[in-house]
Amino acid sequence: MFQEILAFILAASGWVLVTSTLPTDYWKVSTLDGSVTITNTYWSNLWKSCVTDSTGSSSCKDFPSMLALDGYTQACRGLMIAAVCLGFFGSVFALVGMKCTKIGGSGKSKSRVTCFAGIDFILSGGCSLSGCSLYAYKITSEFYDPMVVEMKYELGAALFIGWAGSILCILGGIALCFSIVQSPKGLYEQKRYTVTVLYVADLPPPGYSSSVRMQHFDKNMYV
């Protein structure tokens, strides 16, 4: 139960971090490399692009059309939204399947729900990790490309938050999946205890003959 609680805290914290990256402004920020004087700072995320002047005032413009966006931006949007949805369902399944809650049915059904929750968190972390990595790859490839003469950007804070949340989701999901696995030692002790109880309960009364007692003992050993 303590392992499930710790795994849920890790996975839920990662999901919150992944969710917080969607409204975060700084996915990419204009670089200062090679600039003598900087008057404006350009930055953008998955939904808008903005510019901040030297006085601190910002002017933003939302992306007018989804179909007119770059392919990597559309892919990152889909992956991050999928990560948020999967993390939400994983949180619901985890609350239902954990042993410390009173809902979810029997122990066997709760274990299955907990396993589903762990898989959802792993998939959520994988989607978020893929989306942030794809966005970062596009930024770095343009930064080191000498043929690109346009403005170059650097990695924003949202990418690092997304990577951290993805790792927490994956670790928490793996811990939830392993929390329902019973160790072989525990299974062996439970089986030995069951055989011992059956043997003691089925002992013949003292008035039986030795031959009958031996036959009963052989039957117990076969079972």
Rank of each mutant, 00 (worst) to 15 (best):
G173D: 07
F116T: 07
G107C: 07
L32H: 11
S13G: 11
S183R: 03
W27M: 09
P64T: 04
E142Q: 06
A82G: 14
S124E: 02
G34C: 08
R192F: 12
V36I: 10
Y193I: 00
V197E: 09
F178G: 02
Y222L: 14
I119K: 12
T73S: 06
M214P: 00
V92Y: 08
N40E: 14
S65Y: 15
T55D: 05
A164M: 02
G162V: 03
L176I: 03
P205E: 05
E154Y: 03
C50P: 07
V148D: 03
M214V: 12
K185I: 05
G14P: 13
C115K: 12
P23T: 05
N220T: 09
L187P: 00
V212K: 00
G78L: 09
D25H: 15
I170P: 01
L168Q: 02
D33V: 07
M1G: 14
D120A: 11
I5N: 04
S128E: 07
V212T: 01
L22W: 14
R213S: 02
Y188Q: 03
W163G: 00
Q182R: 10
P23Q: 08
G125T: 04
G71S: 11
F160G: 00
S179C: 10
D218G: 11
Q215A: 12
Y193R: 00
A68R: 02
Q190M: 02
D202E: 09
A157G: 04
S109R: 05
A175H: 14
R112N: 01
L32I: 12
K108Q: 04
M221T: 10
Y72E: 11
L203I: 10
G56Y: 13
M98Y: 11
V223D: 05
A75T: 13
L203K: 04
K191E: 01
S166F: 02
K185G: 06
G207C: 10
S166P: 13
M98S: 11
F88N: 12
S133T: 15
L79P: 10
L159I: 13
W43L: 04
Y135W: 13
I103T: 05
G186F: 11
S20C: 09
G131I: 08
S209I: 01
P205G: 02
I119S: 09
A68M: 05
S133I: 10
L129F: 05
Q3N: 01
T101A: 05
A201Y: 03
K48D: 06
F178H: 04
G105C: 07
R112Y: 08
D70L: 07
Y222R: 14
D202K: 02
S20I: 10
G156M: 04
L176A: 00
K99I: 14
F89Q: 03
G165Y: 13
T140S: 07
L17T: 03
F8E: 03
V197I: 15
Q190V: 00
K185F: 04
C50H: 13
D62K: 12
G162N: 02
L176H: 04
G165N: 03
W27V: 12
E4H: 13
T19V: 03
V113G: 07
L10D: 08
T19H: 03
N45E: 12
G104I: 15
A136Y: 01
E4D: 05
G87I: 08
D53E: 08
D53Y: 15
D62W: 13
E154G: 15
T24L: 11
Y193H: 08
T196M: 15
D33S: 08
T31N: 07
